[in-house]
Simulated assay, not measured.
Amino acid sequence: MKSPLLSLPGAVPAEGRDEGVAAHYGDLFREQRALADGSGFVDLSHRGVIMVTGDDRLSWLHLLITQHVSELPAGRATEALVLTANGHVEHALYLVDDGTTTWIHVEPGTQGDLLAYLESMKFFYRVEAADRTEDFAVVYLPAGSIAEVPDGVAVRETPQGRDLFLPRADLESYAAAHGPAVGMLGYEALRVEAHRPRLGFETDHRTIPHELGWIGSAVHLQKGCYRGQETVARVQNLGKPPRRLVFLHLDGSEVLLPGHGTPVRLASDGEEGRQLGFVTTSARHHELGPIALALIKRNVPLDAELMVGTTAAAQEVVVEP
């Protein structure tokens, strides 16, 4: 779904998974600094929006997702996962309940599969789930923003900022009143800096929650009754996920950023060494320079100097081995 904000001056369309919104609006680092200072907004209108209503909505979702939501207070934001039967991450949900409705936003293009799964699990529960992507657009306001929220708009507030479920028809007028607009490159650079994983970027077909640090933030260890729980419990008890997420400081002399999937090796082994992992997301940060997240084997030494493609990299621990 193409955002109307791509008509703003300087807007350059994003590609790949973020197609449909702007990569930037002409000044990447200025946009990043605006977000870091608590001003501006990010157009996330390409993300999927699912709405769940009905008296049983929270108790029903509680049985299907990894988070404890059966008694979720109105207005409290949380995040959760849907796992496969083998415990691999299938969906990432960012949700809030307003007392009558549970609002969920998900990665672009994944809402159809998620809704199909939810519909297949309704049984006798008093719930209705609907894809409302055509009606609502997600807008992100950074922490510290003093931008107003229109009456009646659902808000998901976290320490990182606020997600607004804005009526899509109001997107252009809201943008005109609450600039500057910040593109996905700026938003993603701050996400990488904060070590926050993203479905489809830090995940592949065999990712489990422990590898990315989703335990606690998206997985509640004191609840059961969800698909994939056995794998979560086994890895938690054994303490040995096969891979771990790391943050990388990249050599700033390289012109090009390493793309998703670029091999990570020990620097001492050179370009022909054994692959230990791969880059998941890379970015140019307004203060840190080139940075990246990568998924590497659990037993790689914490002090090991790494090589990303042909670029030297120093690792910072995100998930303890």
Rank of each mutant, 00 (worst) to 15 (best):
G200D: 07
G200I: 00
G200A: 08
G200E: 05
G200C: 06
F201C: 01
F201W: 04
E202W: 03
E202Y: 00
E202K: 06
E202F: 02
T203R: 01
D204M: 13
D204V: 15
D204K: 07
D204C: 12
H205Q: 13
H205N: 14
H205W: 12
H205P: 10
R206I: 14
R206W: 11
T207G: 12
T207L: 14
T207W: 12
I208Q: 11
I208Y: 11
I208D: 07
I208H: 08
I208R: 10
P209E: 09
P209F: 13
H210K: 00
E211Q: 07
E211A: 06
E211R: 03
L212P: 05
L212R: 06
G213W: 06
G213P: 02
W214V: 05
W214F: 10
W214G: 01
W214H: 10
I215K: 08
G216F: 03
G216I: 10
G216C: 11
S217K: 13
S217W: 06
A218W: 04
A218H: 06
A218L: 01
A218D: 02
V219Q: 03
L221Q: 06
Q222F: 05
Q222Y: 04
Q222V: 09
K223I: 10
K223W: 04
G224K: 05
C225G: 07
C225H: 06
C225D: 08
Y226G: 03
R227I: 12
R227A: 11
R227E: 13
R227Q: 15
G228E: 04
G228P: 06
G228R: 05
G228H: 04
Q229W: 07
E230S: 11
E230A: 13
E230Q: 14
E230M: 09
E230N: 10
T231E: 15
T231K: 14
V232Q: 01
V232N: 07
V232P: 00
A233D: 12
A233K: 15
A233N: 13
A233Q: 15
A233M: 15
R234P: 09
R234E: 14
V235Y: 10
V235S: 10
N237F: 10
N237R: 14
N237C: 08
L238G: 11
L238R: 15
G239T: 07
G239E: 09
K240Q: 13
K240R: 12
K240N: 08
P241L: 09
P241E: 06
P241S: 09
P241D: 01
P241A: 12
P242S: 11
P242H: 12
R244L: 05
L245E: 09
L245H: 06
L245Q: 14
L245D: 09
V246Y: 00
F247K: 07
F247T: 01
F247G: 04
F247M: 03
H249Y: 14
L250A: 08
L250V: 01
L250P: 03
D251Y: 08
